[in-house]
């Protein structure tokens, strides 16, 4: 799975969680979306871990700067899982 495919899946997760529609792009950051607060962030991480069957290591989600980097991290974890 590549970044674009992951973002595609993420879009569906975000559509469920957010009230106002958010269009995900690799450059999008949480700061740009009013609804995207720390509570929603927890929901996103838990949903993503459940959806892709992966687990992030300590601190690595916080280290990502935008949706693109977050998707890359997911791609990496999926690859490790199937390796």
């Amino acid at each position: 799975m590549n970044q674009a495919q992951v973002i595609d899946r993420l879009q569906k997760i975000f559509d469920e969680l957010f009230l106002d529609p958010v269009v995900l792009t690799p450059a999008l950051t949480a700061r740009e979306v009013e609804e995207w607060d720390s509570l929603l962030q927890i929901s996103i991480v838990v949903a993503v871990e459940g959806h892709f069957g992966i687990r992030f290591n300590m601190g690595e989600v916080e280290a990502t700067q935008n949706v693109g980097q977050f998707a890359d991290l997911i791609v990496k974890r999926i690859a490790e899982k199937s390796a």
Partner: peptide
Amino acid sequence: CFEDVLALATLKKR
């Protein structure tokens, strides 16, 4: 489950 409760909590805040 956690996801459900948290999603509902988020909804309540909004």
